[in-house]
Write a protein that binds this DNA or RNA. Structure first.
Lengths: 67, 67
DNA sequence: TACTTTTGTAAAGTTTACATGACATTAAGA
DNA sequence: TCTTAATGTCATGTAAACTTTACAAAAGTA
């Protein structure tokens, strides 16, 4: 799965740590998701999308290898 | 988190077992998500949304208690 | 260059998603 | 009513998300 968190953060001009605070997870969790180390839960994806003001479908995109 | 999987299945006229097959998880997993027993991963949410032809944000919605 | 902020990463522990198998309940059709 | 399909649920096991602590690498700024 591909993600555009970095782009969204840049647009909103916030750091990983600030995003982490807003969605109430650790900074490492945001970093791990952003760098593709793991897949967030849907609740967390919805929160990140809300903070970054985008749809989940824009922020996270399936790849062929996910099927 | 609230979900509208049951509504989406009804619209697409497919059973939990059929949906499970299409997204490649067990029937119990679909049932557990649909009945709110647990939160799916974002990959699974994207797959279910794609099969049911809706956006993740329409299918899964945050509640105040999620924050 | 020196200092500070931001980001990347790793290890160890806890929690939860998801699998499998089994069985009970409900809905639906003959 | 009898039978079958669909759904709900439970128990056990494994894999993966997420936490905390800690440190290193990068990037920005004086």
């Amino acid at each position: 799965m591909k993600n555009l968190i970095k782009v969204g953060r840049a647009r909103s001009n916030i750091t990983q740590a600030e995003l982490a605070d807003k969605v109430k997870v650790s900074r490492q969790t945001i970093n791990s998701i952003e760098t593709g180390k793991f897949t967030p839960s849907t609740v967390l994806a919805l929160k990140i999308a809300e903070v970054l003001q985008v749809n989940v479908n824009e922020l996270f995109q399936l790849e062929d290898s996910d099927w």
